[in-house]
Write a protein that binds this DNA or RNA. Structure first.
Length: 875
RNA sequence: GGGGUGUUAGCUCAGCUGGUUCAGAGCACCUGCCUUACAAGCAGGGGGUCACUGGUUCGAAUCCAGUACGCCCCA
């Protein structure tokens, strides 16, 4: 039989994924006999392609889901995508542009037709990619935030919250994205330190030719929108300007000089130009001092007619031009280089323009309180818990949520304006008309008189309903799915969206189901490159995930990602991790190859009872640990524990212990036990490495049609014989001692040695003789009373071990080695004695600790005695 | 500037309420091995003043305070 020496993931992965799907193992429906286990996917953007963050995130979800499925729960992982209004709209606009179509020239309906076409064509890519990773989602349940049912949910919630008085319309300073031509929420703005110039500009004092004050600004183009100069009332330098006016350069518009403690006397010149329409702080200042706001910018970032100058030109071009012009007429005093914080659009990377505009807002205070306490009181647990503090501080400082976006791709706000400028909010046009008639008393109104709001809702306004809407919990609040699957169990997501997604889902869940939407939130880190830089397209430092899967196999990549990603910590990704994952696959593969290759001889006795007993205990001990890691969401640690169990305990020790000589048959009992162990191991490995494990599971023996690892029963905790584990450890220490001697003396493993033991623990060691002989290639073990001449010896515990050497042994070197060890042990004993002679320690320490100290003392004394005897034998 | 969080081996991290040989793991590194499951491997090994300073304690990587540096969030 020819099984390849290395594991080839490719066909295996395609084969089993198709098979699992065809058998319907991913599908879930409510089953009252089983405990539900539900996960909703953080919906990736429809525009998205799989990146390393998705890989990590979805691997973790898949591990949780597969384990739950094997634990006999009704596991349901709901996949889907969100419509990502800004990103998608930008993508569609760009696509149309390439075709020579300008968005401004087509109607909303035409645009949406194009957008839907685009979505149908490209929107599913990311989900297809997830399949390559092995994600065991219930694909029949795939949802999309803009599909009909989810849209209905959004509108229903909007109307409901409006009627409860939680949604209002207001003029606010918003973050305006001039490239996307829409308002953004605070969370969609990324602040970066950039190098800028600080322009010092002279403003003439009105009526005082030749008298100037100087302001410092990074944005000279906004002077055209200035409506005041502000000075700190405590600033001695400028007291003479009280009650005067200044002239805006170039246009000579007079503006008042006002005084307010807001101004930082240290910054710039201490004179602040106030542009209420284009800066949040200036806006608030303007409110306090009743200043007018002059909005000089168009939505696309060009200047409008109110600026008077440079109309139609872009703000950054104007900045340069205006600086030149000011310089030419002598009003530019100087420029200096500074670094300052500038906001950029998360989606388009355009510089954000603070802008006054009419927007829709959702009031947060009422929704906030229960959502805050559900986390603080651990109804929802964050993993790792350090995020609790962050959550609280954000919730404490929460501000109203700007939910309108000036886009077409999204759910259109269900507000309908009447000819008189008032509006109604309704689920649909008919209802709006009825309301309008009622509100105005005008029964002649027709639908033609109503004009629906042009804006759409923020994408998060759909996503925050996700755990409910994917089960149609708004349309049909009592349906079987929502009753069974909600609340979901675990949510796996990134900390950067803890607030604007996770927190809002909690609010929506509590508001609409009176129940938290999930019980645990596992926060993954950010995947960075090995230099610690965030992976990004522009840096080109992100590997192509599908390419990685191609190279290392999905199992290899999954384990690679997990090897180094404790919850909440960033993952410094290095392809070497995937290599390690692939190597692990190969190790498993070869263990299987070894076992598969054995022939049984039914007549043979089982010589491996001890080894089998030992591994059984070892497995159970490891299993206990692994379960503990899982219960704390320590996935990396769980994987590492499995890794060591497989590699060290199963392969390096157990298989070596039971392995028959080359081409010799094995007895039936050992083989059966070994296959059973392999199966148990495969179970523990399956959530991490679904493909290779299913392949081996199916191949190691005949299976029935329904016998698949993916649905096999997760192991149960069983008895651990700790005494046996301890004794085996001691026996393996002896093996280690012998191997050490071989290494230091350059004796190859193939050369058999003999061993003499001087010990009080004869009866304990005796049962392990065969194992020691096999693993250390020892031909015979004898027990002796006297030290052995011409041997190399070592001490473990209170026992001495002698390996007779051919030829001469370097006596001096051996003696020195032993003396060193003796010294160390004596030092150790001294420290223990010191503790034990300390009255306060003896009185203060718990009995357990004391007992251990006495044990240490006894062990050290025994070892010292043995060492001293060995050393004495040299003389 | 405010808040959070962290600093343990070359790298990534464990180390729970102070007390086992507690200074650990994986990777990397070094040495020797192509020993018929696996060189994508086997066997062995070296490596850290637990950021710094002080305090509490019989006892501190662990608790407290301060300092330095880093990261995150907010302004």
């Amino acid at each position: 039989m020819a099984i390849s020496k290395t594991y080839n993931p490719k066909e295996v992965e395609e084969k089993w994924y198709a098979n699992w799907q065809q058998k319907g193992f991913f599908r879930s429906k409510p089953n009252p006999k089983k405990e539900p286990y539900t996960v909703v996917i953080p919906p990736p953007n429809v525009t998205g392609v799989l990146h390393m963050g998705h890989m990590l995130n979805n691997t973790i979800q898949d591990i949780l889901v597969r384990r739950a499925r094997m634990q006999g729960k009704e596991a349901c992982w709901v996949p889907g995508t969100d419509h990502a209004s800004i990103a998608t709209e930008a993508r569609v606009v760009a696509m149309l542009k390439e075709k020579g179509i300008n968005k401004a020239d087509i109607s909303r309906e035409e645009f949406l037709t194009h957008a839907w076409e685009w979505k149908e064509k490209y929107g599913g890519i990311i989900l297809e990619q997830l399949k390559k990773l092995g994600a065991s989602c219930d694909w029949d349940r795939t949802r999309f935030t803009m599909e009909e049912s989810l849209t209905e949910a959004v509108l229903q919630v909007f109307v409901d919250l409006y009627r409860k008085g939680n949604i209002y319309r207001g003029i606010r300073m918003v973050n305006w994205d001039p490239a996307g031509k829409t308002a953004l929420s605070d969370e969609e703005v990324i602040h970066k330190q950039v190098n800028s110039k600080l322009y010092h500009i002279n403003y003439q004092i009105a009526g005082e030719e030749g008298n100037y004050l100087t302001v410092a600004t990074t944005r000279p183009e906004t002077i055209l929108g200035d409506t005041a100069i502000c000075i700190n009332p405590n600033d001695a330098r400028y007291q003479h300007l009280k009650g005067k006016q200044a002239l805006v350069p170039l246009i000579n518009r007079p503006i008042p000089i006002i005084f307010d403690e807001y101004v930082d006397m240290e910054f710039g010149t201490g004179c602040l130009k106030v542009t209420p329409a284009h800066d949040l702080n200036d806006y608030e200042l303007g409110q306090r001092h009743n200043l007018p706001s002059i909005d000089i910018l168009n939505d696309d970032g060009t200047l409008n007619s109110k600026a008077q100058l440079y109309v139609g030109e872009d703000r950054f071009i104007v900045r340069k031009k205006i600086a030149k012009e000011l310089e030419a007429n002598g009003q530019l005093v100087k420029t200096e280089d500074i670094t300052n914080n500038v906001g950029f659009s998360e989606r388009t990377d355009a510089v954000i323009e603070p802008k006054l505009s009419m927007q829709w807002f959702l009031r947060m205070e009422k929704l906030r309180d229960p959502a805050l306490s559900s986390v603080m009181e651990d109804q929802i647990k964050l993993h790792p818990p350090k995020f609790k503090n962050m959550y609280r501080s954000w919730m404490d400082n929460i501000r109203d949520w700007c939910i309108s976006r000036q886009l077409w791709w999204g759910q259109r706000i269900p507000a309908y304006y009447l000819p008189d400028g008032s509006f109604v909010v309704a689920h649909n046009l008919e209802e709006a008309l009825a309301l309008a008639k009622e509100q105005t008393g005008n029964t002649d109104l027709t639908t033609a008189d109503l004009r629906q709001d042009e804006d759409v809702l923020d994408t998060w306004f759909s996503s925050w309903l996700w755990p409910i809407s994917v089960f149609d919990g708004f349309k049909d609040p009592d349906n079987a799915d929502i009753q069974y699957y909600y609340p979901t169990n675990d949510l796996v997501t990134a900390p950067e969206i803890l607030f604007f997604w996770v927190a809002r889902m909690i609010m929506a869940g509590l508001e609409y189901r009176k129940e938290v939407p999930f019980k645990n939130v596992y926060l993954t880190g950010i995947v960075r490159d090995k230099l610690g830089r965030k992976m990004s397209k522009s840096l080109g430092n992100s590997p192509d995930p599908l390419n990685l899967i191609e190279q290392y196999g999905a199992d290899g990549v999954r384990t690679g990602m997990l090897f180094s990603s404790p919850a909440g910590n960033d993952l410094l990704f290095d392809e070497k991790l995937c290599e390690q994952g692939r190597n692990f696959s190969n190790k498993i593969w070869n263990a299987y190859r070894l076992i598969k290759g054995w022939e049984v001889n039914e007549d043979l006795e089982n010589p491996n009872e001890l080894a089998i007993k030992w591994f059984d205990s070892k497995f159970n001990a490891a299993f206990e640990q692994i379960e503990d890691h899982f219960s704390k969401f320590r996935m990396s640690d769980a994987l590492m524990a499995v890794y060591k169990l497989v590699w060290d305990d199963f392969c390096s020790y157990y298989l070596e212990m039971i392995k028959p000589a080359y081409q010799s048959p094995i007895d039936k009992k050992t083989l059966d036990a070994t296959i059973a162990f392999l199966e148990s191991i495969l179970k523990l490995l399956h959530p991490f490495m679904p493909f290779i494990t299913e392949e081996i599971w199916q191949d190691i023996k005949e299976r029935s049609d329904k016998d698949y690892l993916i649905i096999a029963k997760w192991p149960k905790a069983d008895v651990v014989d700790t005494i046996l584990l301890e004794r085996m450890e001691k026996a393996m220490d002896i093996v280690g001692g012998i191997r050490n001697v071989r290494n230091s003396k350059n004796i190859p493993q193939t050369k058999a040695l003999s061993l003499a033991i001087k010990t009080q623990e004869h009866s304990i060691l005796k049962p392990f003789e065969a194992l020691i002989q096999k693993l250390a290639n020892i031909t015979g073990i004898t027990y002796v009373e006297e030290n052995q001449e011409g041997s190399i010896n070592f001490v473990i515990g209170g026992s001495e071990f002698f390996i007779p050497m051919e030829g001469t042994v370097d006596l001096e070197a051996e003696k020195d080695r032993l003396i060193k060890e003796l010294e160390y042990t004596k030092g150790f004993l001294a420290s223990v004695d010191k503790k034990l002679s300390n009255e306060r320690f003896v009185n203060g320490a718990p009995a357990q600790v004391l007992e251990k100290e006495w044990q240490k003392k006894a062990d050290a004394e025994a070892k010292i005695k043995a060492l001293e005897q060995s050393i004495a034998a040299f003389d």
